[in-house]
């Protein structure tokens, strides 16, 4: 009973901030002092769907960057997490700390320097540059989750496969990857969501030329049309929610893979 109440409070608490957003996105007129919109309409969404709107470009740019970042962070985090979870080596604590440093150090401070470097090597104002800088906040999360997944992983499975004649590549695809997949799926979800909602880094390195969804959103919010901004906000949260639904079975129950976050 108490658990049910707790869960109810949690759900309501998480959903309440979304109610005004949802209302605004379908409002036609909503003037002071009315508690609820006086007139509803789909104007916000219609305007976003109109030819020449920034929406399609924003969605495409954001998706490309987030997908690149997700796969790259997954690859890096999988390797790093494996090393940290399975092996003990000299100055492991230091490596662990350095891997997590981006979570602690404000990315903003570091990015100023990175921006100068990126201008010099021609990565500033490019999609690849933005994707690269998104690795800073994403890799630590993937590494953390994968580290704890590998800490509970028995490497003897790989030895068993090897004795049965499996090559290193077969072992990775047929034994290791299936075993750590739930954790990897959750970690990738984090990476996607972080990249998808990243604003400051994108703005600094992308210089406004790489227009991702958060940049559009900020522009719209500043633009005095709450309905249009709210409609964009609703569209903005759909892709992460869809991914969350796809990976939700790994987040709960016996296969849950987020225990690594306890280390934060």
């Amino acid at each position: 009973m108490r658990a049910a109440i707790g869960r109810g409070v949690l759900v309501v608490g998480l959903l309440i901030p979304l109610v005004p957003l949802a209302l605004w996105s379908i409002t036609r007129t909503w003037q002071y002092p009315a508690l609820l919109p006086q007139e509803f309409g789909m104007r916000g969404f219609q305007e976003l769907g109109r030819p020449g709107s920034d929406l399609l470009q924003g969605l495409t740019t954001s998706s490309i960057i987030a997908v690149i970042v997700t796969f790259a962070a997954a690859a890096v985090g999988l390797s790093a997490g494996r090393a940290l979870g399975l092996h003990s080596f000299r100055s492991k604590r230091l490596v662990q700390f350095l891997m997590l440093a981006p979570v602690i150090v404000p990315a903003f401070a570091v990015t100023m320097g990175i921006q100068v470097l990126f201008i010099r090597v021609g990565l500033a104002d490019t999609l690849w540059g933005v994707a690269l800088v998104h690795m800073i906040p994403t890799v630590p999360y993937v590494t953390l989750v994968m580290g704890s997944v590998f800490a509970n992983y028995d490497i003897a499975y790989e030895e068993q496969a090897r004795v049965l004649g499996a090559s290193s590549l077969s072992i990775f695809w047929r034994v290791t990857l299936p075993a750590v997949f739930p954790g990897l799926a959750v970690a990738s979800l984090f990476a996607f969501v972080i990249s998808w909602s990243e604003y400051i880094l994108t703005l600094l390195v992308g210089g406004g030329a790489v227009k991702t969804m958060p940049l559009l959103l900020f522009a719209y919010i500043g633009g005095n049309d709450s309905t249009r901004a709210a409609a964009l906000g609703i569209i903005f949260i759909i892709p992460p929610l869809l991914l969350l639904a796809l990976t939700s079975r790994y987040l709960t129950g016996s296969k849950k893979a987020i225990s690594g976050l306890g280390q934060l």
Binding site: D154, A156, Y157, E159, Q160, A161, R162, V163, L164, G165, A166, S167, R174, V175, P178, A179
Partner: peptide, 19 residues
Amino acid sequence: STEKRPVGMVFQKSLLFPH
């Protein structure tokens, strides 16, 4: 290398691939 050796091995744990 192990994968080329004509050996079969049973470990202490059964190590059946769970998937």
